[in-house]
Simulated scan of single mutants.
Amino acid sequence: MTTPTAGRLRVPGATLHYEVRGSGPLLLLIPGGTGGAASFDGIADDLAADHTVVSYDPRGLSRSPLDDPQARQEVAQHADDAFRLLELVAPGASARVAGCSSGAIVALHLLTAHPERISLVVAHEPPVVEVLPDAAGHRAMLARVQDTFHREGLMPAAAIFAAALTRPATSSPDTTTPPGPATPPGSSAPPATTTSPGTATPPDTATSPDTATPPDTATSPDTAAPPGSSTPPGTTASAVVAAEAELPPEAAARVQRTMADMPYFLGRIVPSFMAYVPDLDRLQALSDRLVLAAGTDSRGELPYRPAAFMAERFGTELVHFPGGHTGLSTHPAEFGKLLSAKLSERVM
């Protein structure tokens, strides 16, 4: 693995850590979950053979501190950060963008906000659940997660969240109600969700990472990692501690950063980003620049469904990448090879 050129970019309310590799057309990689720039380490060098690859830690995560740790997080602000990075590295140049999970949400907004600068977006499983016909049930689930986070701490909330994400839908994503308004509030929620959607805690009142239950004090054996996290699903805090003892120092530090970022991700990013409503009409008008992707192994699961839903609405192909929602971490070689192929199909 080559050593990237690292830098710091001052943006409103935060300082971003970013990394640049290679030469050629500009490619911005937007990470999801708590992975940060390091989540692309398994594919960035190969992509850098044909691109100038820019990766970074989103604001509030890892090496990109916020000025105000309590600041509300918004998709539009994160997309503006991404645009400022593009302007820094290659002012005025067209760029290709690939994003995973919450990073894919940012990529969608970046495309609609700056279509004159974005030649292609590959969006892998953006969990924009508000586009789904059963959106009200997912709002209820998210409210339950936040309530559990406040009352019981990080790991119990993460367990509920992960279970909801991996629970197969009651109907195939290919046979859902045609695109249209989301199911009104008051519709029946999934069996495990009992909290009213109206009781969801606003993102700006989420528990501070400093006050949430630390990962190393959690006791839930069923805890799984958040979507997009580089920590494999099913990983408990005790398992992470045990694994760190066997990892090289750099890898152990990455795991520590991932776990330390989980309270911020679950408490601030998840409720705001999963409440985001993309501009479907604008995305459809730009669909010739949009590759919607999903994991082969996550068919029917919640993060898979919005990509499938939008692809059907736009009349475009849903591209299946190896693995599930975290295929970038579990199948990096195959994931990177397919991503490179999709990028090369579009001439700038």
Rank of each mutant, 00 (worst) to 15 (best):
S94N: 09
P332M: 05
D67C: 12
G300W: 00
V145D: 01
F265E: 01
P69Q: 03
L338T: 06
S171M: 14
V277I: 12
V54P: 06
A275S: 14
G234P: 02
S230A: 15
P126K: 07
F335W: 15
S344M: 10
P306T: 03
F321V: 07
A107C: 09
G234N: 07
D210K: 14
T15S: 14
A251D: 05
V89C: 09
I105R: 02
P322Q: 07
L66Q: 06
G228K: 01
P303H: 09
T183M: 12
L286K: 08
P232T: 10
V53L: 07
L27F: 07
P322K: 07
V128M: 11
S344R: 07
I118Q: 01
P332Y: 06
D57S: 08
L16E: 02
S229C: 14
P58H: 01
F273S: 04
G228N: 01
A294N: 03
F309T: 13
D288S: 15
S220R: 11
D147N: 11
R72M: 09
T330L: 13
L328F: 07
A71K: 01
D281H: 05
E87F: 04
L16C: 09
L28F: 00
R96V: 02
G228E: 00
S171H: 13
S229F: 05
F265W: 06
A285Y: 02
A37R: 04
D134C: 12
M262L: 09
A98G: 04
T223S: 12
A98W: 01
T207N: 09
R63L: 10
H124C: 11
E19A: 15
G36W: 00
D46A: 15
A76T: 08
G180A: 12
A275L: 10
S238V: 14
L343G: 02
L28T: 04
S188A: 15
T235W: 05
I269R: 02
A251T: 12
A224P: 08
H78I: 14
C100F: 04
A162T: 13
M155Y: 00
S329T: 13
P209E: 03
G24N: 00
G22L: 04
D288F: 06
G315A: 09
Q73A: 13
M259Y: 04
A71L: 08
A90C: 07
G137N: 03
L142W: 00
D81C: 09
T52P: 09
S208Y: 03
V75N: 08
S171R: 15
D46L: 14
R59F: 05
E152I: 08
M348R: 14
P203R: 02
T176C: 11
D288T: 14
L286D: 01
L66T: 12
H320T: 10
T2A: 15
D222S: 14
S329W: 10
L9R: 02
V97Q: 01
A307L: 08
V129I: 14
L86G: 12
V97C: 05
H150D: 12
F149E: 00
P303Y: 06
T201A: 10
M259K: 02
A251I: 03
A253T: 08
A260L: 11
H124K: 08
V255K: 09
Q70L: 15
A136I: 02
D134Q: 11
G186E: 00
R72W: 04
V291F: 03
T219A: 13
T236D: 02
A239W: 01
P190M: 08
F83K: 11
H114D: 00
G315R: 04
Q146K: 10
P173E: 03
P233E: 05
T296C: 06
A206R: 11
D80A: 15
